[in-house]
């Protein structure tokens, strides 16, 4: 069984997530080769063939160019699996490759069970075991689902690949994340507001508890998208990654993107009306209650000593 792993490189950096691809291939028991549009000066540690396209020549991510490069490598390599991360890159590129290959794509694999792939359903409340009907299968892996105990070692045998493909989409530049202001990574206590706060006026309930605990307040994505809390307080994949002594998640269901930003907190309290919310997976204590009643009561007790 052969797996072609698709590593990622952005803005001059090889992304460390390539190690998760190797971790997955080991669990699957597959021989692996790797594909990277990157640089010879930032090679992944790995024993095997690395098909390398020079990012300096190819330019920043262009779906059609990367697709053509990858298809030419697949043609040579004839893998059974083509494995991406379930990232903005994998999201974009994997279905294009699957479509060209007439292959099945299984998205956001979290586990291999009896040799088949398991993916989350309904915001991770359920799991689904999926079997492909095609010879070749394209996979995307959930970030963090397949790690390695030790970083991989070795140096790959590099085979250079290139293309003169162009596509209809033109990349014009990157825009940095909104400049900070609030660095939550230094906070010892963070109280975060999720969709469960219900309306912008209720954010003050969260701020009051944060202040009573001598900490800062944060928010999950939907609250930031609704502009109830500014983006520089967002915790999660597209915001900040935090690990305070205490994290209180208020009305946050626990989407994987949020969990990725806070699950390393020392002690996690979740307050949610839904006892089955995925936030319960990482919480040390889950308080099943309406935050609008519970948080003010808690704030009073803490202030009262």
């Amino acid at each position: 069984m052969k797996a072609l792993l698709v590593a990622e490189y952005r803005d001059g950096q090889l992304l460390g997530s390539y190690q998760e691809l190797i971790g997955f291939a080991r669990q699957l028991g597959a021989d692996c080769s790797m594909f990277l549009v990157g640089s010879g000066s930032a090679l992944p540690a790995f024993e095997g063939t690395l098909y390398l396209a020079d990012a300096a020549q190819v330019g920043d991510y262009n779906p059609d160019v990367h697709k053509q490069l990858l298809l030419s490598v697949i043609e040579q390599e004839q893998p059974d699996y083509i494995v991406f991360l379930h990232s903005s890159y994998g999201w974009d590129l994997a279905p294009r490759v699957a479509c060209s290959l007439k292959a099945s794509q299984i998205s956001e694999v979290v586990e291999i069970k009896d040799g088949t792939m398991v993916v989350p359903v309904c915001n991770a409340k359920l799991r689904r075991q999926v079997t492909p009907n095609t010879q070749v299968t394209v996979l995307t892996l959930q970030a963090g689902a397949f790690g390695l105990a030790e970083p991989p070692t070795g140096s790959p045998e590099v085979k250079e690949v290139s293309t003169d493909a162009v596509g209809p989409i033109t990349f014009t530049g990157y825009e940095a994340a909104e400049a900070g202001g609030v660095d939550l990574s230094k906070s010892e206590v963070i109280v975060s507001a999720g969709r469960g706060v219900g309306k912008p006026e209720n954010v003050s309930i969260i701020e009051d508890l944060a202040s009573a605990l001598g900490g800062d307040y944060g928010a999950s994505r939907p609250v930031v998208d609704s502009e109830w809390v500014e983006h520089n307080r967002q915790v999660g994949t597209t915001g900040q990654t935090v690990a305070p002594k205490l994290y209180v998640a208020c009305g946050i269901s626990g989407a994987i993107q949020h969990l990725a930003g806070m699950k390393k907190s020392e002690f996690i309290v979740a307050v949610n009306t839904d006892k089955d919310a995925p936030i319960g997976e990482v919480a040390d204590v889950l308080v099943v209650a309406d935050l609008k009643q519970f948080i003010p009561a808690l704030t009073e007790k803490i202030k009262g000593g």
């Binding site: 088949t116 689904r128 075991q129 999926v130 492909p132 979740a270 319960g280 997976e281 099943v288 209650a289």
Partner: peptide, 20 residues
């Protein structure tokens, strides 16, 4: 091109305390 073999609930990991 693919099918669902099974749908199931994930095993509860950890075992945090639930207060009601």
């Amino acid at each position: 091109r693919q099918q669902t073999a099974a749908l199931f609930f994930p095993e509860k990991k950890g075992g945090g305390l639930v207060l009601e």
